[in-house]
Amino acid sequence: MSFGRLKRHFPWITLAVLVLIVGTIHPSFLRPQNLIELAGDIVPLFIMALGMTLVIYIGGIDLSAQSVANMTTVLATISLPIFGVFSGVLVILAGLAFGALSGFVTTRLKVPSFIATLAVGGLALSVGQYASSQRALYMDAGERDHAFGWMVGSGWSGVPHELILALVLVVLAWFLQNRTTIGRALKAIGAGEPAAVASGLKVERYKILAFAFSGMLAAIAGLLFSVKLSGGSPTLAEGFLLPAIVAVLVGGTPLTGGVGGVLNTLVGVLIVAVVRASMLYFGVPATSQQIVFGIVLIVAIALTIDRSKIRIVK
């Protein structure tokens, strides 16, 4: 029992321990300036993980997030000169549409979400490749700053704007999850879908909504990334998917859904950020980082999954 109770607190304890270890060995890590930069760098990943959280919360998975973000960088770069700031709205709607498509395929056509989102991700990837002709594209600095300059950089306070953006999104997502009928329905679906159906909830609609939110947030992540790097390419967000899933799971939202949520993912993303930074400090080459994330992912799933919900693993 004490273990079960402790389990809930694992994520932030892990975070604190990691920060302490890295901070003790490399005190420079703890400099406020460094920490703020670290946090700022992780924001696109965080936004993607936020969307992923909603889908994992209902017991699904969204493997299309990275491809949707990739596609967004391309579409945003292409449409910026034409639509200015409205290109942002367009690409976010595109992400929403791709997410909704995943949701439709998995609920109405009864395709498991990992396959449905893998397929829709393939679609998004192709759109990105086609639209960019497989080249890296660049934004005009003036146009970019005019339309999206507010997203990046830091104002008089010294706090990077993307951190503020992340904060606003996490507050909105938290409110959605804990204070709205949508959030309650998603929780019920994750914790006990048959009972949610038998309570008269329109479960399919809520599920489609969760996937649509995920697609939308993946697009916002892609947009921010594209603005930060001032360009787009169908491979720009490569390597985001695994850390995003890791962040959700180490944060304490298990693959089986129903518990955890967006605040857990906040902690999870910080863990990922610290792990990533410490790999730099300890000289782990960038090419090997995915190995670490893969291992962390497996360990996190093994520790957090609710085995009472899955009797047999195939």
Partner: peptide, 13 residues
């Protein structure tokens, strides 16, 4: 326990 109530949610929920 499967269709009647949602385990993991509170009484009021």
């Amino acid at each position: 326990k499967i269709e009647g109530m949602v385990g993991g949610m509170t009484v009021y929920e």
